[in-house]
């Protein structure tokens, strides 16, 4: 029932809320009945209040998307109106370009690796930090800080540290465990993707931990205690009681993480740049889009690339909503949809 409409986040948020699902029943009809003659006035108010947001949203979100579809059928360098209609030629070229495919491959690898690496780490650390330890709130702030640092700033710092004779190699050498370390973190195509995952984990793990900790606070402690009384060890209780109940939070985090990974640009752009990223195996779909629009001036082709990226994001988002978030939605009937 609730899956009929888009309204994904509203519903999934309600889903995460779990028990709160019933609280958002539609406003009583009495409101309408209370002011029977105010309908023209209401319409005016609705227009005045919602109008500006709708205008801005349509003008700068919907219109560009529609225009991209239109431009995508032309060969066009961006000067004057497009005239050179090429039909599906741009799309054909995209799907024949190995550079595009390797970018897509990297993007999806980043999606998968982010989920696999950050998910368990975030749950584990959230469980740990959720314990009543001293300085918990300070720890929470510090862990969260990288999320606030801009990607460009973070990228600059990491770029310096990852140089062959940079801070990271020197520090690892200083540990006297591995001998002299001189890993080519950025250039070596066997290492680069893992370097990127390290930076991404550093940047976004705090956000995941905060979400998980919020989810943990929604789980009634009684369930955990009951499991303990029944003889489960601390970690057993976490594994079989707490983590499953954290399901809705994990699934929403995963959604946000997937969308974020698919649009990854800044960090790779600052640390690798477009050419090195292709060699090192860290180029992303968004970088391919920049290279083939702003970078080359072929705006017709670039628009077609944008449409393809739209399509990919949309398919992933809708598929995730239908197959993964559905069980969260089935409990939450919201009026929004």
């Amino acid at each position: 029932m609730s899956e009929s409409q888009v309204a994904l986040t509203q519903e999934s948020l309600d889903g995460a809320r779990g028990a709160g699902a019933g609280t958002h029943v539609p406003a009583p009809v009495s409101r309408k009945a209370r002011r029977p003659r105010a309908s023209w006035r209401e319409r005016l108010e609705i227009t005045l209040l919602a109008g500006p947001a709708i205008v801005v949203f349509v003008a700068f979100v919907i219109v560009p998307v529609v225009m991209a579809v239109y431009y995508g059928f032309y060969r066009w360098t961006g000067d004057g109106p497009p005239t050179d209609w090429v039909g599906l030629q741009n799309y054909k070229l995209i799907f024949q370009d190995p550079v595009f495919f390797s970018a897509v491959k990297h993007s999806f690898a980043i999606v998968g690796l982010s989920l696999v690496i950050q998910g368990p780490l975030a749950v584990g650390l959230a469980l740990l930090l959720n314990r009543k330890i001293r300085g918990r709130s300070i720890i929470r702030v510090l862990v969260f800080a990288p999320w606030v640092v801009s990607e460009v700033v973070a990228g600059m710092g990491w770029n310096e540290m990852l140089q062959a004779d940079g801070a990271l190699n020197h520090m690892l050498t200083g540990l006297h465990i591995f001998g002299t370390v001189s890993i080519d973190w950025i250039g070596d195509s066997h290492v680069a993707i893992w370097t990127l995952m390290m930076v991404l984990t550093w940047k976004y793990l705090g956000f995941a931990i905060i979400l998980m900790m919020a989810g943990l606070q929604n789980i009634p402690e009684e369930l955990f205690e009951a499991a303990r009384v029944d003889g489960a060890s601390y970690w057993q209780a976490q594994r079989y009681v707490t983590v499953p109940l954290l399901g809705p939070t994990i699934r929403i985090w995963a959604f946000l993480s997937i969308i974020g990974s698919l649009q990854l640009f800044d960090l790779v752009w600052v640390i690798w740049g477009s050419t090195s990223s292709q060699v090192a195996g860290t180029s992303t779909m968004a970088m391919y889009m920049r290279d083939n629009g702003l970078g080359s001036g072929t705006w017709g082709y670039g628009s077609a690339v944008a449409v393809v990226l739209f399509g990919i994001s949309l398919v992933v988002a809708v598929a995730y909503q239908r197959f993964v978030l559905r069980r969260d939605l089935s409990g939450a009937i919201t009026e929004g949809a």
Binding site: P64, M67, G260, L262, S303, V305, S313
Partner: peptide
Amino acid sequence: LMFPISVAVTPLYLL
């Protein structure tokens, strides 16, 4: 929510 700004940046530039 499904169209992050980075995916829309090329058409936005043209607009």
